[in-house]
C-alpha cells in the first residue's frame, strides 16, 4: 500500500482526479470573485458530461465536441445569469433548479438519444487524447507523472494560469473583482455590474463544462446517470478554501484530488467499497471545517480576544 502511494502512478492518478474538481473550482472562483455563488456547477458538469458524449459522437471529433460542450456550458451559465441578475431569483434556489433539471434532463436526453437510462455505452463517443510530452516523459518519476495525461488535464493546469492573469492583469478581471467586492462602486463609474456578472457566470459555465466534459471523455469514456456525484459541490468548497483565487483553488483541488485518488486506490484493498466512497466527501467536510475554524480564530484574534 505504502509503496503504491509513493509510486508515480499514484501521483499521476492525483492529477487525473484533480482535473474535474479543478475546472469546477476555477469556475466557482470566477463567479465568486464577481460576487455570486455558483452552486449550479454540479448541474452544468452533469449536463456537459452528457453533451460531451453526444457532441463528440455526432461530430466524430473530440475537439469539436469539446467546443460545442463549452458553448452549451456558456448557455447554461447565461440562463443562470438571466434568472439571478435579471429576474432576481435567489442564486442558491436558481442553482438548485438547474441542478434538478440536469438530473432529470440528462436521463431524458440520454433515453431519447440512446434508448438507455443508465449509461451511454451505446453511443460511440470520442474521448480527448492522452498526450505524451517529448523529453519530459524521459525524466524518471516526474516524467511518469507529468507526461501521458489526458489533454483536459493539461488544459486545466493551463486554465489556472490563464485565469490568474485574467483576473489580476486584465481590465475585465479588475472589473470582475471590483464588482464582487463593491458592486455600487463599480456601478458608480459606469461599469454595468450586471454585464460583468453575466460575463463571469458565462465564463464560469464554460469552465464547469470543461470539467464535465472530462468526466465522460477522459476520466471515463461514457456518461452514467448522476456521474458528477457532488464534484461540483466539492469544487465550491475548494474554491472557498482557496480564497476564490485560481492558485488557491488549484492547491485545494489537488488536496481533494488526492483524496479521490486515494479512494480509487483503496478499492483494491479489502476495505468495504461503501466506506471508501465516503473518503472524498469526508475529506472535503473536514477540510472545510479546519479552514473555517482557522478563519474564525484569525478574526477573533484581530478583535483582541
Amino acid at each position: 500500500m505504502l509503496q503504491s502511494l509513493l509510486s508515480p502512478d499514484f501521483f499521476n492518478a492525483i492529477l487525473r482526479a484533480t482535473t474535474p474538481i479543478l475546472f469546477a473550482a476555477l469556475a466557482s472562483s470566477v463567479a465568486s470573485k464577481s460576487g455570486i455563488t455558483n452552486m449550479a456547477l454540479e448541474g452544468i458538469m452533469l449536463f456537459s458530461a452528457l453533451f460531451g458524449v453526444i457532441f463528440s459522437a455526432m461530430t466524430g471529433n473530440f475537439a469539436v465536441g469539446l467546443l460545442l460542450t463549452m458553448v452549451a456550458g456558456a448557455l447554461i451559465g447565461l440562463l443562470l445569469a438571466f434568472f439571478v441578475l435579471n429576474l432576481k431569483t435567489d442564486e442558491i434556489l436558481a442553482a438548485i433548479a438547474i441542478n434538478l433539471m440536469a438530473t432529470g434532463g440528462t436521463v431524458l436526453l440520454m433515453l431519447a438519444v440512446s434508448g438507455d437510462r443508465g449509461s451511454s455505452t451505446s453511443i460511440a463517443s470520442v474521448s480527448a487524447p492522452k498526450i505524451v510530452i517529448p523529453l519530459i516523459d524521459r525524466i524518471p518519476f516526474l516524467g511518469q507523472i507529468l507526461s501521458g495525461q489526458n489533454l483536459m488535464t493539461y488544459l486545466s493546469l493551463l486554465a489556472v494560469i490563464v485565469m490568474h492573469v485574467f483576473l489580476y492583469k486584465m481590465p475585465l478581471g479588475l472589473k470582475i473583482r471590483a464588482v464582487g467586492e463593491n458592486k455600487n462602486a463599480a456601478e458608480s463609474v459606469g461599469i454595468s455590474a450586471r454585464k460583468i456578472q453575466y460575463i463571469a457566470l458565462i465564463l464560469s459555465g464554460v469552465l464547469a463544462s470543461m470539467g464535465g466534459y472530462f468526466l465522460s471523455g477522459g476520466y471515463m469514456n461514457m456518461f452514467t446517470k448522476d456521474m458528477s456525484a457532488g464534484k461540483g459541490y466539492i469544487a465550491l468548497a475548494a474554491s472557498a478554501m482557496g480564497g476564490d483565487t485560481p492558485v488557491g483553488a488549484f492547491l485545494v483541488s489537488l488536496l481533494f484530488g488526492a483524496a479521490q485518488a486515494l479512494a480509487n486506490m483503496m478499492q483494491l484493498t479489502d476495505i468495504p467499497h461503501e466506506l471508501i466512497q465516503m473518503v472524498p466527501y469526508l475529506t472535503t467536510l473536514v477540510g472545510l471545517g479546519i479552514y473555517s475554524y482557522a478563519g474564525l480564530k484569525r478574526r477573533q484574534k484581530l478583535a483582541g480576544k
Binding site: L174, R177, A178, E181, N182, N184, A185, A186, E187, S188
Partner: peptide, 11 residues
C-alpha cells in the same frame, strides 16, 4: 460623488 464612498477597498 456619493454620500457613501463608492470605492473598492482592496484596490
Amino acid at each position: 460623488v456619493h454620500q457613501h464612498f463608492m470605492l473598492v477597498p482592496s484596490l
